[in-house]
């Protein structure tokens, strides 16, 4: 099986950048800020691939650069360097032209953000939020759009009667489920979940995680789950990358990374959680 997504040496810097940025930052230097030019190296040389039906975890503390990886893959941020290849798309998707990127974003890539405001228009109806991706994919039949949105809302346990309500009136957990429904609307090849349950009550978290698992079992998408929560990573993923200060410090089978971590930072992470 070939990789659905293949990421090669993804790097994102904020600042002017200099020749010494990469050599002067990272876990070995205890900082992601270049001492020579002040540039923040949010992530550097991040490489991985994900197959169809596979779930990859990226774990790390805030500031580790894991969300920057998500933002680059969802085209929310342009990378400074590096490439990403999505099966069926010719060439590096990160350097594709704006229209092609938008098309990929609307049809092949779904993302669920930690904060629903990032992924949803709170003043647009729930059906409209879910349907937006379908409209972008040139669906021009309101009845069919609503039927698909209803299916997805049912799947994500939102009462269909609320299809014409604005998510502004919804609880945090419901909003996350609407985000999921929206992300799934165009049957994406790649689903990125950036801290999908952070900030939610434990019981609400559980339902979302159940839902994500069900989706993974049924839809067979390639998923990248980004979380600082090792429980989420253990539950959802089979392979995991550990990031610290913008670099991948460890990667492996999720159970191995969590039960026999090799890197000092991963050991700290695992021990802090227990």
């Amino acid at each position: 099986m070939s990789a659905m997504l293949s990421v090669e040496r993804l790097t994102r810097r904020y600042g002017p950048g200099c020749d010494r940025c990469l050599a002067s930052t990272g876990p070995a230097h205890g900082t992601n800020s270049c001492p020579h030019c002040g540039t923040v190296v949010a992530c550097a040389d991040v490489s991985f691939d994900v197959e169809d039906g596979e779930v990859l975890g990226i774990v790390g503390e805030s500031g580790s650069g894991k969300s920057t990886v998500a933002a680059c893959l969802a085209f929310d941020q342009p990378p400074t360097s590096g490439q990403a290849f999505l099966e069926g798309f010719d060439g590096d998707m990160l350097s594709a032209d704006a229209a092609a990127r938008r098309r990929l974003r609307n049809t092949r890539i779904g993302i669920v953000y930690q904060t629903p405001q990032q992924g949803l228009a709170l003043d647009v109806t729930t059906g409209g939020n879910v349907g937006e991706r379908l409209l972008a994919a040139d669906w021009r039949h309101v009845g069919r759009i609503r039927a698909r949105a209803s299916d997805l809302l049912e799947r994500t346990e939102i009462p269909i009667a609320r299809i014409d309500e604005e998510p502004r009136a919804f609880s945090g957990g419901m909003r996350q489920r609407v985000q999921l429904a929206k992300a799934l609307a165009s049957r994406p090849s790649l689903l990125i979940l950036d801290e999908p349950t952070t900030g939610l009550d434990v019981s609400v978290q559980a339902r979302i995680l159940d839902l994500i698992q069900g989706i993974q079992r049924e839809a067979g998408v390639a998923m990248v789950v980004i979380s600082h929560d090792l429980g989420v990573i253990r539950l959802l993923t089979e392979r995991t990358l550990v990031m610290k200060l913008g670099r991948v410090v460890e990667e492996g089978l999720t159970d191995q990374v969590l039960e026999d971590p090799q890197d000092a930072y991963t050991q700290l992470l695992v021990n802090s959680a227990l």
């Binding site: 704006a98 229209a99 647009v124 109806t125 409209g128 349907g131 937006e132 409209l135 309101v142 014409d164």
Partner: peptide
Amino acid sequence: QRMHAERDYSPMWLYLYESIAR
């Protein structure tokens, strides 16, 4: 300007969808 250049008119379609939904 960007939307015209890229023919990214889905927000307008969403506007019309919202009108129908409401």
